[in-house]
């Protein structure tokens, strides 16, 4: 649909945190801007808007992805989970609780992206997905600090809270393994 000024709109349906939404979007709008500006879900953050910082990370069809690099118009039929959808009501996910327990943040701006990224990463590891530091062979990799650091390298923290972020992810990974 061309609205006359060259701007093109399209209708899409996306499921966000479990609720189906029918939306009319400018084809240029990113998934990140759709979430923040149209749906009021400001958890996912706009850091660099170039896929370099990971602050916008969400789960897209179950996999972690940078919402700033995804065009909303291309997500018709997709299922999106944002940081607002990680908890079960008032009950935090084990990973969210671990971030609190380990004090895994300073300013908090990167935290929603860290949480969504680590949630997706723990699932990848459980499914036996390798990283650049995984030794050859099958079976789920052991999530030691080197694995966690490598797998979380797409999420920057300007405050430098990495030590506690790694500790929180390690704690959540240990809980998931039990």
């Amino acid at each position: 649909m061309d609205s006359g000024d060259g701007v093109v709109h399209a209708e899409i349906t996306v499921t966000v945190n479990g609720a189906a939404r029918r939306l009319r979007v400018d084809t240029r709008v990113s998934l990140l801007d759709l979430l923040r500006e149209e749906l009021g879900l400001t958890g996912a953050k706009k850091g660099c808007d170039h896929g370099q910082c990971g602050a916008c990370t969400v789960l897209l069809d179950g996999r972690r992805a940078n919402a700033c690099l995804a065009l909303a118009v291309a997500q018709d039929g997709a299922e999106v989970v944002t940081v607002e959808g990680l908890a079960g009501g008032d009950r935090l996910s084990p990973l969210q609780q671990a971030f609190l327990d380990e004090d895994a943040f300073q300013c908090g701006y990167c935290t929603p992206g860290q949480l969504c990224s680590a949630t997706g990463m723990l699932d990848e590891a459980a499914r036996g997905r390798p990283s650049a530091v995984t030794p050859p062979g099958d079976g789920p990799p052991e999530l030691d600090d080197a694995e966690i650091r490598e797998r979380m390298s797409g999420n920057l923290c300007r405050c430098g809270a990495y030590v506690n972020i790694v500790a929180a992810v390690r704690a959540a990974a240990g809980e998931a393994a039990r």
Binding site: R64, N66, L69, A70, S117, G120
Partner: peptide
């Protein structure tokens, strides 16, 4: 790249 970008 990163885990996110390799997924996309």
């Amino acid at each position: 790249a990163s885990g996110q970008i390799r997924n996309q």
